[in-house]
Amino acid sequence: MSYDSQPSAPRRPRNRLVLVAAGLVPTCLAGWLVWQALSGTDESEPPKALPLPSQSHTTQANSPTHSPAGTDGDKPTGGNSAKPSGRGGPLSGKTVVIDPGHNPENFEHPTEINRQVDIGSGRKECDTTGTSTNSGYTEAQFTLDVSHRLRELLEKQGATVTFTHDADRPYGPCIDERARIGNKAKADAVVSVHADGSAQGNRGFHVILPALVQSGAADTSPIVGPSRELGVRIVGKFVQSTGMPPSNYVGKGTGLDVRKDLGGLNLSTVPKVFIECGNMRDSTDSALLKSASWRQKAAQGIADGITGYLGG
Rank of each mutant, 00 (worst) to 15 (best):
Gly311Ala: 12
Thr138Pro: 02
Ser44Cys: 06
Gly93Cys: 07
Tyr171Pro: 08
Glu108Ser: 15
Ala185His: 07
Val207Trp: 04
Arg169Trp: 05
Thr269Ser: 15
Thr143Glu: 01
Ser54Trp: 04
Glu177His: 14
Glu139Val: 13
Trp32Met: 14
Ala211Lys: 07
Arg14Asp: 07
Lys272Leu: 02
Asp118Cys: 09
Thr254Lys: 05
Asn15Ile: 13
Ser268Arg: 11
Pro245Asp: 11
Ala211Asp: 07
Leu29Arg: 06
Ser227Leu: 11
Ala49Gly: 08
Lys48Leu: 15
Gln240Val: 10
Gly120Glu: 00
Ile223Leu: 03
Lys124Thr: 12
Arg149Lys: 15
Asp72Lys: 03
Phe274Pro: 00
Asn134Cys: 02
Asp261Ile: 14
Gly182Ile: 00
Gly73Met: 02
Thr59Pro: 14
Pro76Leu: 08
Thr27Glu: 12
Asp176Phe: 07
Thr95Ile: 06
Arg169Ser: 08
Val213Met: 07
Gly79His: 10
Ala185Cys: 11
Pro226Ala: 10
Ser132Asn: 00
Gly278Pro: 03
Gln157Ala: 15
Asp219Asn: 15
Tyr249Thr: 11
Gln116Arg: 14
Thr307Glu: 00
Arg12Leu: 10
Gly255Cys: 06
Arg180Asn: 12
Lys290Gln: 13
Gly278Thr: 05
Gly70Ile: 09
Lys184Gly: 11
Ser291Cys: 05
Asn266Glu: 06
Ala30Glu: 01
Ile175Asn: 07
Asp127Leu: 12
Gly197Gln: 00
Gly312Val: 10
Ala199Trp: 02
Ser291Met: 04
Gly93Asp: 01
Asn134Gln: 06
Ser268Thr: 12
Arg14Val: 15
Gly305Pro: 01
His165Ile: 02
Pro51Met: 05
Asp196Phe: 04
Gly204Met: 02
Ala9Lys: 03
Gly73Ala: 13
Asp168Lys: 08
Ala167Ser: 12
Asp99Val: 12
Pro104Cys: 13
Arg259Asn: 07
Arg180Pro: 04
Thr95Arg: 12
His206Gly: 11
Leu150Asn: 09
Asp118Leu: 11
Pro100Gln: 06
Glu105Lys: 14
Ile234Gln: 07
Thr133Asp: 01
Glu155Arg: 14
Ala69Trp: 00
Gln214Ser: 13
Val250Ser: 05
Ala9Asp: 00
Trp294Arg: 08
Lys83Phe: 03
Lys124Val: 09
Leu52Asp: 01
Leu33Trp: 10
Leu19Asp: 04
